[in-house]
Design a protein around this nucleic acid. Structure first.
Lengths: 185, 185
DNA sequence: GTCTATACGCGGATAGAC
DNA sequence: GTCTATCCGCGTATAGAC
C-alpha cells in the first residue's frame, strides 16, 4: 500500500512535475481512495519527504559500495567509480531526480534524511582528503562542494537533453572533476 | 505599472519560491488591484515568461560585451571574462535566478526568448570553436553544453550556500572549465 | 481499513461599478 | 483604466458509512 502510493507519486512527479503532484492524483494513480492515502501519509509533503529519504538512502548505499571498492586506488580511478554511481542514479529516472532536487530545499526533512545527506557529503570529503592531501579545512569543504555541484550540474543537464550514453558522460564528468582538482595538487 | 508588477513578482519569487507566486500576492505587493494586473498580463504564467525574457536579455547583453572584449585573447582569459559575467549575474539575485531556472522548462516561451537563448549558446560555441580548434560538430556542441552546465551548477550551489566572494568563485569555475577543456586540446 | 461524500480555503480569473 | 466584489474550480484534508 505504502509502496503503491510512493510509486504512483514518483510516476506523477516525473510526468508532470511538482505542480501535478496532488493527493487526489496520487490516490487515483495508486488505485486507492484518498481516505486510505491519509491513513498512511499525514500530508502531501510527507509523501515527498519519504520519496526523498528513500532516494537518498539508495544513493548513499551505492556510493558506500563504490567508495569501498575505490580504497587505495588512484584519484582518477576513485573519481570514476563515484561518478559512475552518480550518473547511473540520475539517469535512471532523470525527471524524478530533478523534481526531487528542486523541492528538497523547500521541505523540512526528518533527521534520518539529514543524516544521510551528511554521510554522502562525508564520502566525497574522505576521498578528497585521502587523494589530495594539500586540501585541508575550509578549502577541502569548498572543493567537495564544488566537485559535487559541477558533477550534478553536468549530469542533470545531460539527463534533460535525453542523453543516454552513460559511459561517455562518466568520462566527461570525471575529466571535469580531475581537471578541477589537478592544479590544486 | 508593468514595471511595478514585474518587480513585485521578482521579490515574491526570491522570498517564497514559485509556490508563493500568486496573482493576488503580486498585485498586493505591487500596490495595484488584481483587476489592473490582468489588464497588463494575460495570466500568471505570462508574468513569469516576461521575467525570464528580461533576465535572459540582460545576461545576453553582458555576455556579448564580454565576448567582444575577449576577442583575440587566450582561452583562459576568455573563459574568465565569460565566467565573471555568469557569476555576477547569478549572485546578484541567487534565489530569483534559481526559481526562474526551475520554472523555465515548464513554460512555453515566446520566440524572442528562444532566440535569446540560442544567442547565448552561440557565444559559448563561438568561443570554443575559436580557442579549441580540435572541437568540431557534435563534440563541440556537447562541450559547450558541458561547460555551461558545470559552470551553472557550481555557481548555483555557491549562491545557495550564500557565498559572496565572487573573485574566488570565478577563479574556481574558470579552473573547472579550463581543466575540462585542456585534455581535449 | 477502506470507501464515498463533502467541508473548507485558496488562487486564478472575470464582471461591472466608478 | 482602475477599482471592488465575486465566480469558479481545484486541491487538501476530514467525517462518517460500510
Amino acid at each position: 500500500m505504502v509502496e503503491a502510493i510512493l510509486d504512483a507519486a514518483a510516476r506523477i512527479l516525473e510526468e508532470g512535475g511538482i505542480g501535478a503532484l496532488g493527493t487526489n492524483a496520487v490516490a487515483q494513480r495508486a488505485g486507492v481512495s484518498i481516505g486510505s492515502l491519509y491513513q498512511y501519509f499525514a500530508s502531501r509533503d510527507s509523501i515527498l519527504a519519504e520519496l526523498i529519504r528513500i532516494d537518498h538512502a539508495r544513493l548513499l548505499a551505492e556510493l558506500q559500495q563504490a567508495a569501498a571498492k575505490a580504497g587505495g586506488r588512484s584519484l582518477a580511478e576513485s573519481v570514476r567509480l563515484l561518478v559512475e554511481v552518480g550518473v547511473s542514479h540520475q539517469l535512471e529516472r532523470p525527471e524524478l531526480a530533478r523534481a526531487l532536487d528542486y523541492v528538497e530545499p523547500t521541505l523540512s526533512l526528518d533527521d534520518e534524511t539529514v543524516a544521510i545527506e551528511r554521510a554522502i557529503n562525508g564520502i566525497v570529503l574522505t576521498l578528497l582528503k585521502a587523494s589530495v592531501p594539500s586540501l585541508r579545512g575550509r578549502a577541502l569543504e569548498v572543493a567537495a562542494a564544488d566537485v559535487a555541484a559541477l558533477s550534478h550540474g553536468m549530469i542533470d543537464a545531460a539527463g534533460r537533453r535525453g542523453e543516454t550514453d552513460r559511459r561517455a558522460l562518466v568520462e566527461r564528468v570525471s575529466r571535469a572533476v580531475t581537471g578541477y582538482l589537478s592544479p590544486v595538487d
